[in-house]
Computed example of a mutant assay.
Amino acid sequence: MYKGRKPSIDNNQVKELKERVAAGENKTALAREYDISRQTLYSYLKIQHRDESHNENEI
Score class of each variant (00 low, 15 high):
N57D: 08
E16P: 00
E56K: 08
V21C: 09
D51G: 00
Y44K: 02
E33Y: 11
N55V: 02
P7C: 07
A23H: 08
H54T: 07
Y34R: 03
L30M: 15
E58D: 08
I9V: 10
L41I: 03
P7M: 09
L17P: 02
Q48H: 11
E58H: 10
M1D: 11
P7L: 07
E25T: 07
L45H: 03
R38L: 14
G24M: 07
K6L: 15
Y34K: 05
Y34W: 08
K3Q: 01
N26L: 12
G24F: 05
S53L: 13
H49E: 13
K3F: 01
E52R: 13
K46Y: 03
E33L: 11
K6S: 14
K6R: 15
D51M: 02
V21L: 05
P7W: 09
I36E: 04
Y44C: 03
V14Y: 07
E58G: 00
D51F: 06
I36M: 02
Q39N: 09
A23I: 06
L17C: 02
I9G: 04
D10C: 10
K6Y: 06
E33A: 15
R50K: 12
V14P: 02
R50I: 02
Y2H: 12
M1A: 14
R5Y: 03
N55A: 11
L30I: 11
R38E: 10
P7E: 07
G4D: 04
E56C: 01
P7Q: 04
D10S: 14
E16D: 10
R20W: 02
T28W: 13
K6D: 13
I9N: 06
R20V: 08
K46Q: 01
T40Q: 12
R38H: 03
A29V: 14
R32V: 14
I9R: 04
N12G: 06
K46F: 00
R20C: 08
Y44T: 05
I9Y: 11
E33W: 03
K46W: 00
A22E: 05
S53E: 11
G24A: 05
Q13F: 05
Y42P: 03
A31I: 10
N12Q: 06
L45Y: 03
S8I: 03
E56M: 03
Y2N: 14
D51V: 01
S8D: 03
I47H: 05
Q39C: 04
P7A: 15
I47K: 06
A23L: 09
I36S: 09
I36G: 04
E56R: 10
K27G: 10
Q39D: 11
D35P: 04
H49R: 05
N11F: 04
E25Q: 14
A23R: 15
Q48L: 00
L30S: 14
A22C: 04
H49Q: 12
S43Y: 13
N11V: 10
N55W: 12
E25L: 13
G24E: 09
E19T: 10
A31C: 14
Y44L: 05
H49G: 08
S43T: 05
A23Q: 14
Q13K: 15
N57E: 09
T28Y: 15
Q48S: 12
T28C: 10
Q13R: 15
E33I: 04
K46P: 00
E58F: 12
S8H: 09
